[in-house]
Design a binder for these strands. Structure first.
Length: 547
RNA sequence: GGUCUAUUGGUCAAGUGGUUAAGACACCACCCUCUCAAGGUGGUAUCACGGGUUCAAAUCCCGUAUAGACUACCA
């Protein structure tokens, strides 16, 4: 196409393609080093799927001494959210993700292959588009959206394949005079690719996750530059990942069907395409249908949900790694004390189907993680959570640190650790009775023995004749048994099971009375420990409150 | 409609032509036990369907069904 006309189409460009090629030289890395990217729109929203992708990307880059960079894809201005970039960086940081290059906040960026914000790269994209224009591989299109709608319905009616291609791509045939005329009339335009692909030919690609794939060649005259001068995703992706020397594009599999477009663009521009790895979406079962997790319907998709529920970030990461690599879980179980960075991740172990999000499993993982930390860490983390979501509980925790830590320590340092917390949000409900302020002498969960006179007899006898703060656990339990014998309960469980009828109940029933009197709950951690923490005065006081 | 991809227990899944079809979560039972949690032992349950190829098929091929993605001047 005529040079002056091209200048009119894309004015004000001072460099040519070779300038940018020289500006971004090949990276100085090992041959097998993986250079990959996280490329969100600046919506400020990070969801589980993003994290899933990020977990794989970060790991692969780390493992090969490669690079993970952040690139903001803001070519659609409607998606912009204020401070979106910072929000994304912060959200991702909570899960331990940082980037080697890219924006570090709204205004600053690090790295030699920038700018890493697409709207700041307008000139670059236009320069490449201009080059294509000059070579006759692109052309301006003045068609309006309404006209495109008409085109589409015509194609639908005559059962033709839908799209702007071949003879349907009318603007392809515009003469230079016609273009000049439109330009003089200030008709808005876009730049399209002049595609000579053949839909009947096949292209094959090797996807790192899915293996060999076959598609028809792309023959659509894709939009390269939109009316606002910014590129489409397709064009920006190809230019950016070429200039930033991305070796692996790891992205959601909704992009799979755009692969022929991208491959075609790489070919036309004379670039070497990267390796593609398309990861499956996270889905959810709703009734009998399975669907992709959606931002609108599923609160658990937003990473902020986990923060709010108090599910530790490590648990989320561990769960995601478990679904990312099918052999990870086995590895993890046999290398419990090892750093999970030592696990070798591979693309071909990433499932292709798309996992159903399994909250139960996540909570199980979380439970295990929380059982391994110390009581003090448990206290700190719970407090941190409460500071954000339950101020009242946070204050109580601070005022009763000693009790709280001791409570968290119950059966924690044994070889069979207690595993009863999966989320910080459930802590309060589980141990409220340890704090006077939260204890309410109401809703006693009496079990077998529920006669109030009998209950009072047991409590009085116990506190007057048996309880001694100085007892160790063994003598504490022996006394419990002694009391059983005195009051007509079975002190030996096996004995009791053989002849339940000759006793009023067993030592289990008797200790349940004490348990419920102290906590109102029928199910608690080790009763001896609870009593040691409460101390004699509180025990007495709570016994007295039983009515 | 077109293009592409997928389908192993309730869930995540191993599996690459010959296996009693691993393992984890969940569930059930029993054991341990002062309740619960944990732990131990055991258990229920899976190759979407129909044809082929082969001595032999979860595995290869072809159909069917179902699901998902894409089919924008969104990404």
């Amino acid at each position: 196409m005529n040079k002056d006309l091209v200048e009119r189409l894309l004015p004000g460009l001072t460099h040519d393609v070779s300038y940018f090629e020289a500006l971004y030289p090949k990276r100085d890395l090992d041959d097998n080093a993986i250079v990959t990217r996280y490329a969100p729109s600046p919506t400020g929203f990070v969801h589980l799927g993003n994290l899933f992708q990020l977990a794989i990307s970060r790991k692969m880059a780390l493992q090969t001494k490669g690079v993970l960079f952040l690139r903001i894809e803001d070519t659609d201005q409607e998606r912009y959210v204020e401070n979106g970039i910072t929000k994304i960086i912060e959200a991702v940081k909570q899960f331990g993700f940082t980037f080697d290059e890219g924006p570090i906040n709204e205004d600053e960026q690090i790295g030699k292959y920038g700018p890493y914000i697409q709207s700041m790269r307008k000139e670059i994209y236009q320069t490449y588009a201009k080059d294509l224009l000059l070579k006759g591989l692109a052309y301006p299109d003045f068609t309006t959206k309404e006209e495109l709608d008409i085109l589409r319905s015509e194609q639908e009616k005559s059962k033709k394949r839908i799209g702007y291609y071949g003879k349907w791509a009318r603007s392809r045939f515009l003469s230079e005079e016609e273009i000049i005329k439109k330009l003089d009339e200030k008709v808005p335009y876009i730049i399209r690719l002049r595609n000579n692909g053949d839909f009947n030919r096949k292209v094959t690609v090797i996807d790192a996750i899915r293996g060999k794939l076959e598609f028809p060649e792309d023959d659509i005259d894709q939009v390269l530059i939109k009316n606002d001068g910014l590129p489409t995703y397709h064009f920006a992706h190809v230019i950016d990942d070429h200039l930033m020397h991305t070796t692996h594009v790891i992205r959601g599999d909704e992009w799979l069907s755009s692969l022929p477009i991208h491959l075609n663009l790489f070919k036309i521009l004379g670039f070497t395409p990267p390796v593609y790895a398309h990861i499956p979406p996270l889905s959810k079962k709703e009734g009998n249908t399975i669907r992709k997790l959606s931002k609108r319907k599923d609160p658990e998709l937003a990473v902020s949900y986990y923060h709010e529920m108090g599910i530790p970030n490590e648990a989320v990461m561990l769960y995601l790694t478990t679904i990312a690599n099918s052999n990870f879980e086995e590895w993890y179980l046999s290398h419990e004390d090892e750093d999970i960075d030592n696990f070798e991740m591979s693309f071909n172990k990433v499932g292709v189907t798309g996992a159903l999000f399994d909250m139960e499993k996540l909570l199980n993982i979380s439970k295990n993680i929380l059982s391994k930390i110390t009581a003090l860490e448990m206290y700190d983390k719970t407090l941190l959570w409460a500071n954000n979501y339950d101020e009242d509980f946070a204050r109580i925790l601070k005022e009763n640190k000693d009790i709280a830590v001791k409570t968290f320590d119950i059966e924690r340092n044994t070889e069979k650790r207690r595993k009863d917390f999966a989320m910080f949000s459930e802590v309060k409900n589980n141990i409220f009775y340890m704090f006077d302020e939260l204890f309410v002498a109401d809703n006693y969960e009496w079990q077998k023995i529920n006669d109030i006179e009998e209950i009072k007899t047991i409590l009085t006898t116990y506190i007057n004749d048996y309880y001694d703060t100085l007892d160790d656990e063994e003598s504490w339990f022996n006394k419990m048994k002694d009391m059983c014998d005195k009051l007509g309960y079975a002190s030996n469980m096996k004995e009791y099971k053989k002849n339940p009828d000759i006793y009023k109940g067993s030592v289990a029933d008797l200790s349940t009375v004490i348990r419920v009197a102290l906590t109102t709950k029928a199910k608690t951690p080790n009763l001896y420990d609870i009593m040691q923490i409460l101390g004699k005065d509180k025990i007495k006081e709570r016994f007295n409150r039983v009515k």
